[in-house]
Design a binder for these strands. Structure first.
Lengths: 113, 113
DNA sequence: CTGTATCCTACAAGATACTG
DNA sequence: CAGTATCTTGTAGGATACAG
């Protein structure tokens, strides 16, 4: 039986987390635990350009991991936050982290910086 | 505090699973539960080229997810299998799958094929 | 402040041919 | 059988300038 192109939920989820800045964005939103402004993300990720930041945010939004709220006030303001689905990813992310610490960091003991 | 470039184990693990064919390869090795020949992988993933297959295998090997054993017999033979670290990924992969089924597939109910 | 619009580069992935 | 070696292409990501 040949491979089924993207019927596999694991592939879909992995690829939705695969952008260069997606995990850092996720971590920041998760840690803050409240809506965060575009400019705050920009400040927190100093080496990201606006184009790329917007792209990564749009993709996370398309994948229902974050949500975007716009307040077109005198001073325009946009806030991003994890959806409840996004927040619930923490369970497997924690397990991934644990796996990584166990199997990656332990291999680097013998390396010099 | 700015982002730490790849001190984050989650980023490392996600990116080690991010290749186009890595999850399909993983799934095949996991399902078979025994060493699998290069040619068997090729047959199972009909649309992959040898160059790409070899690349993906080398990366999975570098990341200690699979191991390669070569038997330079009359008819050369190479077998790939999950390492025990690789096999232990199944725990979070299962959780990812569960998350995906719950949050992705359920959104597609309203789509037509 | 929160974005687009362009342009550019690097690299992942594919097609195809050749090899020990 | 299990790969390299080349060449090509698509796309992610970055630099920079402009805009509502």
């Amino acid at each position: 039986m040949p491979v089924q192109l993207n019927e596999c939920p694991v592939e879909v989820v992995i690829s939705s987390l695969s952008g260069r800045w997606k995990i850092p964005i996720y971590r920041y939103l998760y840690k803050n635990d409240q809506p965060v402004r575009y400019s705050a993300l920009q400040r927190h990720l100093p080496s990201i350009s606006k184009k790329v930041l917007t792209e990564q945010l749009r993709e996370l939004e398309r994948d229902s991991i974050i949500e975007r709220k716009s307040y077109p006030e005198p001073r325009p303001r946009v806030e991003y936050a994890l959806t409840s689905a996004g927040r619930s990813m923490i369970e497997f992310l924690d397990q991934i982290s644990e796996w990584g610490v166990k199997h990656i960091l332990s291999k680097q003991e013998t390396q010099q910086s």
